[in-house]
């Protein structure tokens, strides 16, 4: 049992204890966001200590550099994943009642208004401006409402001109 093995064993056991503590935290914490915090911080620390113990047990070789690379990847990916889960929780509709808890008492829901009885569909009364698109009979009606005398055999254009003259006055 050299000194190298003793140091590696101590590091690995400490890392394992931290991982067990983070697992206990994930199970027992009361809220979703606190559970995320326990997992994100505790898992990274436990992984770091175990990987350091493994690197010490090997010695100074290429393999220990690869273990450091694994640790760098874990350190970069754990917080990003935790952040994405927080975003997913916040943007969902009122996750675990956070929106109502922050303001104090939850606002009482407004009573649903009674729906108005469906009115019969109104008939659109035609109030279009007289134009060339209207038929001749409609133009004659509009002109007689305004009180214009229409000569016989008048075309649509003549009736329209009479209507415009009267409306301009």
């Amino acid at each position: 049992m050299t000194v190298q093995m003793i140091i590696a064993a101590i590091l690995i056991i400490a890392g394992f204890l931290f991982m067990a503590a983070s697992l206990a935290g994930i199970i027992r914490f009361p809220d979703f966001f606190t559970r995320l915090h326990a997992q994100g911080v505790g898992d990274t620390l436990g992984a770091f200590l175990i990987l350091a113990g493994m690197a010490v047990s090997i010695g100074a070789e290429l393999l220990s550099v690869k273990l450091v690379l694994i640790f760098i990847i874990i350190v970069l990916t754990n917080p990003i994943g935790t952040n994405l889960m927080i975003i997913a929780a916040i943007n969902s509709e009122d996750y675990q009642g956070y929106a109502s808890k922050m303001d104090g008492e939850p606002e009482p829901e407004p009573a649903p208004e009674p729906e108005p009885e469906p009115e019969p569909p109104k008939k659109k009364t035609r109030k279009r401006k007289p134009s060339m698109k209207m038929k001749k009979a409609e133009l004659i009606e509009a002109a007689e409402e305004m009180g214009i005398e229409i000569p016989e055999g008048a075309t649509k254009k003549i009736i329209l001109d009479l209507i415009y003259e009267k409306s301009e006055k």
């Binding site: 983070s22 997992q39 898992d43 436990g46 874990i74 996750y95």
Partner: peptide, 17 residues
């Protein structure tokens, strides 16, 4: 659903070790 995703994410580190 999100509580299950929490455990899936925690299992990633353990499987690597």
């Amino acid at each position: 659903l999100l509580g299950k995703l929490n455990y899936v994410f925690a299992m990633n580190t353990v499987i690597v070790l």
